[in-house]
C-alpha cells in the first residue's frame, strides 16, 4: 500500500510512511499560523495601523468574554436562538428525511420534483424572507419557519444523494432472496444510504442555525443575530466579534465531532480511510 512517495512533493498527498510525524508537524504549523494571525492582529491594532474601533483586537475580544457571558440579555439571546435552531432542525429534518426517501425511491416523483429542490438549493432562499415576515411576524416564529425551510432543502438533497449510494447489486440480492419491502428498506436501503443520512443531519443542523440567525439579522428583536447587528451598529466590535467567534467555535466543534462520529459509524465502507 505505502508508496514511499517521491512524488509527494508534487502531489501534496500525505506520505503514508511517515504519517505520524507529518501529521504532528502539520498540526504545529497550523497552530503557528493561527497564533501568527492573532499576534499580527493585536500588533496592528495596538500600533494604530488598523482602527481598533472597527477591527477590535484579540485581547479585547478575550476580555469581552466574561461580561458577555454574564449579561442576561446575551444569555436570553443564546437560549432563544438555541430553541429556534432546535425547532427548525426538528421540523426541517423530519420533513427532509421523509421527502428525501420518497424522492429517492420513486423515480417518477424524483424526476418531477428533485430538480426543483436542487434549484432551491442554489438560489437565495432569503428572497422569501420578507414574505415570511408578513405571514409570521417579527418574532421567533419567522426565524423557525425560515430555519426549517433551509434545513428541509439541505436534508432532502443529502438524503436523496444517500439513497443514490445504495448499490443496485445489493438491491439485487434483496430481490433474489425475496426480502419484504420493509426488510429491504431496513437492511439494504437504510444502511446503504447512511453516509448520506449522516451528512444530511449535519447540514440540517448547520442550516437550521444559519436560517435562524439570518432571520434575526434581518428584522428580529431578539437572538444572537439581533445582538450582532446591534453591537455592530454601536461600534461595539469587540462584543460582536466575541459573540460571533464563540458561536462559531461551538458550531465548528459540533461539526468536527459529528464528522468523527460519522467516520466511525460508516467505517464499513470499502473506501473508508482510517
Amino acid at each position: 500500500m505505502a508508496v514511499p512517495s517521491v512524488y509527494a512533493g508534487r502531489l501534496g498527498a500525505s506520505t503514508r510512511t511517515r504519517r505520524g510525524t507529518s501529521r504532528a508537524e502539520a498540526r504545529v504549523w497550523r497552530t503557528a499560523f493561527i497564533v501568527g494571525v492573532v499576534v499580527l492582529w493585536e500588533l496592528l491594532a495596538r500600533t494604530g495601523v488598523i482602527d481598533e474601533r472597527f477591527a477590535s483586537k484579540p485581547s479585547s475580544i478575550v476580555m469581552a468574554v466574561p461580561p458577555l457571558l454574564s449579561d442576561p440579555q446575551v444569555l436570553e439571546a443564546l437560549g432563544m436562538t438555541l430553541y429556534a435552531v432546535g425547532a427548525s432542525f426538528a421540523i426541517g429534518t423530519a420533513g427532509g428525511m421523509l421527502v428525501g426517501v420518497i424522492l429517492g425511491l420513486q423515480p417518477m416523483l424524483r424526476t418531477a420534483y428533485f430538480p426543483i429542490v436542487m434549484m432551491l438549493l442554489g438560489t437565495p432562499k432569503s428572497l422569501f424572507l420578507p414574505v415570511i415576515m408578513l405571514f409570521f411576524g417579527l418574532g421567533v416564529e419567522s426565524a423557525i419557519v425560515f430555519g426549517s425551510i433551509l434545513t428541509f432543502v439541505h436534508v432532502t438533497v443529502n438524503v436523496v444523494a444517500g439513497v443514490d449510494l445504495v448499490e443496485p447489486k445489493h438491491l439485487m440480492v434483496a430481490k433474489a432472496y425475496r426480502a419484504s419491502r420493509w426488510k429491504r428498506f431496513r437492511h439494504v436501503i437504510l444502511p446503504g444510504a447512511s453516509p448520506g443520512l449522516f451528512t444530511a443531519i449535519w447540514h440540517g443542523l448547520r442550516n437550521g442555525f444559519t436560517g435562524v440567525v439570518i432571520a434575526q439579522l434581518f428584522t428580529a428583536t431578539a437572538g444572537i443575530g439581533y445582538l450582532v447587528r446591534v453591537y455592530s451598529n454601536n461600534f461595539q466590535t469587540d462584543r460582536a466579534l466575541t459573540l460571533i467567534l464563540m458561536v462559531s467555535l461551538v458550531l465548528i466543534l459540533v461539526g468536527t465531532g459529528w464528522n468523527h462520529v460519522e467516520k466511525r459509524l460508516t467505517s464499513w465502507r470499502p473506501d473508508a480511510t482510517q
Binding site: A8, G12, S22, E25, A26, R27, R30, L217, S232, L251
Partner: peptide
C-alpha cells in the same frame, strides 16, 4: 497543494472556514 505539509496544515483551516457562519460577519 505544492507540499504535503502545507496541504495537511491548511486543509482543516479551510474546512473550518467552510463551516464558519460567515453571514454573522455581514454587519461588520
Amino acid at each position: 497543494s505544492r507540499t504535503p505539509l502545507r496541504a495537511q496544515a491548511s486543509e482543516p483551516l479551510l474546512s473550518w472556514g467552510y463551516m464558519f457562519p460567515v453571514v454573522l460577519l455581514y454587519p461588520l
